[in-house]
């Protein structure tokens, strides 16, 4: 039991972070908080990859005189380097869109935005009727 919790500690952290991130994305009404949640969700996946690659007591994969040196798998780390760049791009684009939405609607709350869209729609509809 203890082993199942502490032996795979990293995976529990990954799991918890992932669920928190996904929950924020789904439940929060603020567009800014959604992006924070998305970033958290992506970060948990980075941690998942790093955990695969890490070997306890392993060093960095650099050629030394000692042939029996234990080293961690470098590939997941490199993959995550790419994924971090992608994550940064996603966050940047999301934040830029949020700024533009704030300019256009004067709010970044989902409810207020859909309400203001509804008002606009009704105005248009009545204009057509007149």
């Amino acid at each position: 039991m203890i082993d199942q919790i502490f032996g795979v500690w990293n995976y529990w952290i990954v799991f918890i972070l992932m669920m928190i991130g996904l929950y924020i994305v789904i439940s929060k009404k603020s567009l800014l908080k959604k992006i924070v949640g998305l970033a958290l969700f992506q970060t948990s996946v980075f941690l998942l990859y790093i955990t695969f690659g890490k070997i306890a007591g392993g060093t960095a994969p650099i050629l030394t005189d000692n042939v029996n040196e234990i080293y961690s798998n470098p590939l997941p780390h490199v993959l995550i380097l790419t994924a971090i760049v992608v994550g940064v791009a996603t966050t940047a684009l999301g934040l830029a869109l949020t700024v533009r939405i704030n300019k256009a609607y004067g709010s970044i709350n989902e409810n207020e935005i859909s309400a203001s869209d509804l008002v606009e729609y009704h105005k248009k509809y009545h204009e057509v009727k007149k």
Partner: peptide, 27 residues
């Protein structure tokens, strides 16, 4: 803007799901 934002969030979650799958396979 809202359409783009929703596309971004859903697309990013989808792509991250894909990466989780690939990670497990690589593992």
């Amino acid at each position: 803007l809202i359409a783009g934002y929703n596309y971004l969030i859903l697309g990013a979650v989808g792509a991250t799901f894909y990466v989780i799958g690939v990670g497990l396979l690589y593992g």
